[in-house]
Design a protein around this nucleic acid. Structure first.
Lengths: 133, 133
DNA sequence: CTTGACCTTCCAGCTACTGGAACCCCTATC
DNA sequence: GATAGGGGTTCCAGTAGCTGGAAGGTCAAG
């Protein structure tokens, strides 16, 4: 299986797959012509990586998850813990963004948005006037 | 005003301020010894930038906002539009993260998280079994 | 005169790729 | 055999927005 086939199969761009090899997430064999030659197992790993990345796990977390995936003796608790940490991080990020959103909404709504120069958004950014609470 | 003073005043690290100069967001004067010499206006700009960045505006958006801030003839509509675009982006991001969070929660809850190797999270990542809907 | 805190520049590194150049390989067709 | 095309390969640079660190100049105090 060459790189474009495995790209197709895993849904990852060829560039990304080469990058994953560079950082040792996969180690495809090489043909006599120097082309990468991916096994079915490589393809599964790449699919696994694609799914993990799409769920927002970092590359290092993916590395951990992959090693757990390949370890038939792993404890599911170890996997759960990685996922739970990630989940907490996401939840935290959501809260931050929601706070941001509230602030921005207040600002956007307070600005009349016409041709005049007076603007509460700029006032807030400059810290010159108290923001509308 | 040297760099550590303006860092103190604006709440930005000195490194960041040097970086902002490098990308032409500020243009402090220079003393005879080569040290940067910040005016009050520079300090205000930096504070403005710090606040804008903390609200999640990109550097390029900050550049736009700063030029609007300095343009006494600007239309508040222009400012509002930049902020509104940003707000939409934030709202979108929140939705993405909420979807992610829901998926992860399902996965985390479905994993018993004990010493056994069986793990629905890995099953989902591998795509070998249907995820619990 | 030395010490220590400041300042300067420049280079490297972070995350996770992505684009592009320059070049090799393989197959098919004329 | 030449050529065209569609693969593949490597390596370098760039993205966003800093941040850390090295090497060295400057300044005020003791």
């Amino acid at each position: 299986m060459n790189i474009s086939e495995v790209a197709q199969a895993s849904g990852l761009p060829a560039k990304t797959i080469r990058y994953y090899e560079e950082i040792d997430l996969v180690r495809p064999a090489r043909g006599a012509n120097g082309y990468r030659d991916f096994s079915e197992q490589d393809a599964h790993k790449l699919t696994f990586l694609g799914r993990s990345r799409s769920l927002g796990f970092s590359i290092e977390e993916c590395r951990t998850l992959l090693s757990l995936y390949e370890d038939r003796e792993r404890a599911s608790a170890d996997v759960k813990s990685v996922a739970a940490v990630h989940l907490d991080r996401i939840a935290e990020k959501i809260e931050e963004l929601q706070a941001l959103k509230a602030t921005l909404e207040t600002l956007v709504h307070s600005c009349h948005g016409d041709g005049r120069p007076d603007c509460p958004i700029l006032d807030d950014l400059a810290g010159t006037k108290a923001a509308c609470a």
